[in-house]
């Protein structure tokens, strides 16, 4: 008797479960409908496009080419040829996709931790000082101003003999080249502007997060004899883990997708020193009019980001509060 009851329950959902699921769906519906129509469908189309050839013209001109696009962007034949010759880094040094990948990954690996550290530090500092509101507004400003104005302004400041270089020289370091004209420094110019711009944004998110850490936890820690630094490590950080998860994912995705800053500040120059994945995509899609190939490059980007996201997602489940 007990067995059959158990068996019956396992088949299909109970009425309660079904009701809950329906309710859940009703919550999702408004957002999901708009999202599905205006975002999800185009994204799926873009995925499909990466297997097709479409160089402008009407939709009837689209044809299926399978993995050809990918073979072309990875320059499979040429890379194999060079590999056989002993030139192992040909892909990363000479092929557009390789260069873009290398630059984008470098940029991400540097910018994400820098921004996170700066924004947490700022949030902590501005949680309790006097005049916090004024400071917060100041630090949030860069995010709010128009990209054109910011990039033009920073370009000007990073010129040879500009204010930044003058400060550097004053510190005794012998460097006086226009940042955006130098293959190495152009990347750092972009990193600088990006961190400058985003730290206010993520500072705001962390501020909201810090509001939620219960004071009792800090009090308990003080009683236990923990100093400020220990409290930070053992109380604050763990408590804001979901926020850090959010911020790091958004930052990583944002860095992989960087476009505006590069397009306005350096246009990928000098040469291909600051060619990023999305500037490459933009060039292929809108200057060379090769939509299929552009989609293929986007797929590479998507897969990379997905891998990183899934890893982080798996980690998050360990700390989630649900």
């Amino acid at each position: 008797m007990a067995e059959s009851t158990v068996k019956r329950r396992k088949r299909g959902m109970s009425r309660l479960e079904r009701k809950n699921t329906l309710i859940a769906y009703s919550f999702l519906a408004p957002n999901f409908l708009g999202f599905a129509i205006f975002t999800l469908v185009p994204v799926v189309c873009a995925i499909l496009l990466s297997f097709m050839e479409w160089n402008g013209g009407s939709i009837s001109a689209i044809k299926w080419v399978g993995l050809d696009n990918f073979a072309e962007i990875f320059k499979v034949e040429k890379v194999a040829e060079k590999w056989a010759e002993g030139n192992y880094f040909y892909f990363f040094n000479r092929v557009d996709l390789g260069i873009a990948l290398k630059n984008t990954v470098f940029y991400t690996v540097v910018t994400v931790p820098l921004t996170l550290v700066c924004s947490i530090a700022l949030a902590l500092a501005l949680n309790k000082v006097k005049g916090a509101v004024a400071f917060r507004t100041v630090f949030f400003f860069p995010y709010v101003a128009s990209m054109v104005a910011i990039c033009v302004c920073w370009n000007f400041m990073l010129m040879k003999d500009g204010p930044i270089n003058q400060m550097i020289m004053a510190l005794g370091i012998n460097f006086n080249k226009s940042w955006t004209a130098d293959s190495t420094m152009a990347m750092w110019a972009i990193i600088l502007v990006s961190v400058w711009r985003s730290m206010g944004y993520y500072m705001v998110i962390y501020l909201a997060a810090l509001q939620g850490v219960p004071r009792e936890l800090y009090e308990a820690a003080t009683v236990d004899g923990a100093n400020k630094w220990q409290q930070f490590l053992n109380v604050t950080l763990p408590q804001i883990k979901p926020t850090t998860f959010f911020c790091s994912i958004m930052l990583i995705i944002g860095c992989f997708k960087i476009y505006d800053t590069v397009a306005i500040m350096t246009e990928g120059s000098p040469g291909r020193a600051t060619k990023m994945l999305v500037t490459y995509i933009y060039d292929v899609a809108f200057n060379q009019i090769k939509y299929g190939i552009a989609s293929a490059i986007s797929m590479v980007l998507l897969i990379l980001v997905l891998i990183v996201t899934v890893i982080q997602f798996a980690n998050e489940k360990k700390f989630a509060n649900v």
């Binding site: 994204v43 873009a46 992989f256 980007l301 996201t309």
Partner: peptide, 14 residues
Amino acid sequence: ISTIAVPWQAYMLP
């Protein structure tokens, strides 16, 4: 989340 990862330039056309 994955749709956030796709750069807008990629699905802009469809």
